[in-house]
Design a protein around this nucleic acid. Structure first.
Length: 307
RNA sequence: GGCUCGAUAGCUCAGUUGGUAGAGCAGGGGACUGAAAAUCCCCGUGUCAGUGGUUCGAUUCCACUUCGAGCCA
């Protein structure tokens, strides 16, 4: 009998934090974040990271533990998260995965295999250079020679994925397609019960707009300035919504009003992409955001067959 | 009050020498296996302001009306 792990996902500003903490209190659970930006230290306001008060004594894992100048990836996330699951189960508690990063969630619920390799900074730089000087189509053709099947799903404009196909081959000698076939053969270790929070789109967008205003009031700009002073390079952290826009504002690329509108718009689009991602998984149980917390908790308990 | 210009997609505008129209942005849908809050793909019918006239046919021409901008009194 596989052990149960609860997963709560949903778009940004959908109320995952409040729901998960109430649930954890009720079922003696602990929370593992699945959020690619809340992992970073000192990025608190812009990532809407739960505060100590909000946590109400519930232990949270994989929050606030990576320096913004460090690189982090799904492969590491999966390893860290599985370690946390083990730890929680060992204590006799229920692990609750909570987050909006679909890729991170999927790495767990589909038990995706990532061969143990080091990130090759040099090789990526080489690829970047080729893309810039000779054009992306050179890399695209190269990838096509290596893994024609994988390239059927990748656009000639999708630089990141083209580079990834090349990087996998470079690091492992295997193609991405071979890699994925092996990955699918792997049995899934836990019994993941997946829930997602849904809102009427208009209402969700209003919540997002309001949340962005609050972030700015709480000192988002100051937070970004502090981080920029303290660290030199940001391999991934400055991809965060709200952060790159504030940097552009500080550099005078647009006014404060324009910056705020841009963050709101980009966040709304992000929420839309998240919903697309979560809809894909057909076993997901959907919760209505407008429901009372207790009501949704009951749906989870019933759906997960707990309590 | 008179004159001029404008009114076309949610917004900004293009266009139709008369045969019912198209861009950008917004928005929607989708993809996603080591950067993922990233990256990429697809999607444009709207009383062409209203009413009447000319015409086989008007969003296009004409008249009036309404609204907006400007100029002159």
């Amino acid at each position: 009998m596989k052990e149960k792990v609860i997963v709560i996902c949903g778009p940004t500003a959908s109320g995952k934090t409040a729901l998960s903490i109430e649930l954890a209190k009720k079922i003696n659970g602990e929370i593992i974040s699945a959020d690619s930006m809340q992992i970073y230290k000192e990025m608190n306001i812009g990532t809407a990271k739960p505060t100590i008060e909000e946590m109400e004594g519930i232990k949270h894992y994989l929050l606030d533990f990576v320096s913004p100048d460090q690189r982090y990836s799904v492969a590491e996330y999966q390893k860290d998260a599985k370690k946390a699951i083990k730890e929680i189960l060992k204590k006799g508690k229920v692990p609750i995965i909570v987050g909006g990063t679909g890729l991170y969630v999927d790495s767990l619920i589909y038990e995706i295999q990532y061969p143990n390799i080091e990130f090759d900074e040099k090789y990526r730089e080489q690829l970047e250079e080729i893309a810039e000087k000779q054009g992306l189509e050179v890399l695209y053709k190269k990838a096509l020679e290596i893994d024609e099947k994988a390239m059927q799903k990748i656009s000639p404009n999708d630089k990141k994925r083209i580079m990834r196909v090349l990087e996998i081959y470079h690091a492992t000698g295997k193609t991405k397609t071979e890699q994925e076939i092996e990955s699918r053969m792997q049995p899934i270790e836990y019994d993941y019960k997946v829930f997602a929070i849904n809102w009427d789109r208009q209402v969700l967008y209003e919540r997002i707009n309001k949340r962005v205003d609050i972030m700015v009031e709480q000192g988002l700009i100051e937070e970004v300035k502090t981080i920029l002073q303290k660290y030199k390079t940001f391999p991934t952290a400055m991809q965060g919504l709200g952060y790159k826009e504030v940097v552009d504002y500080i550099e005078g690329k647009y006014t404060k009003e324009e910056m705020i509108d841009k963050i709101k718009m980009e966040t709304r689009r992000y929420a839309k992409r998240q919903l697309t991602w979560f809809r894909k998984n057909k076993q997901t149980t959907w919760l209505e955001g407008t429901n009372e917390l207790q009501n949704n908790i009951n749906i989870i308990l019933e759906g997960a067959n707990i309590g």
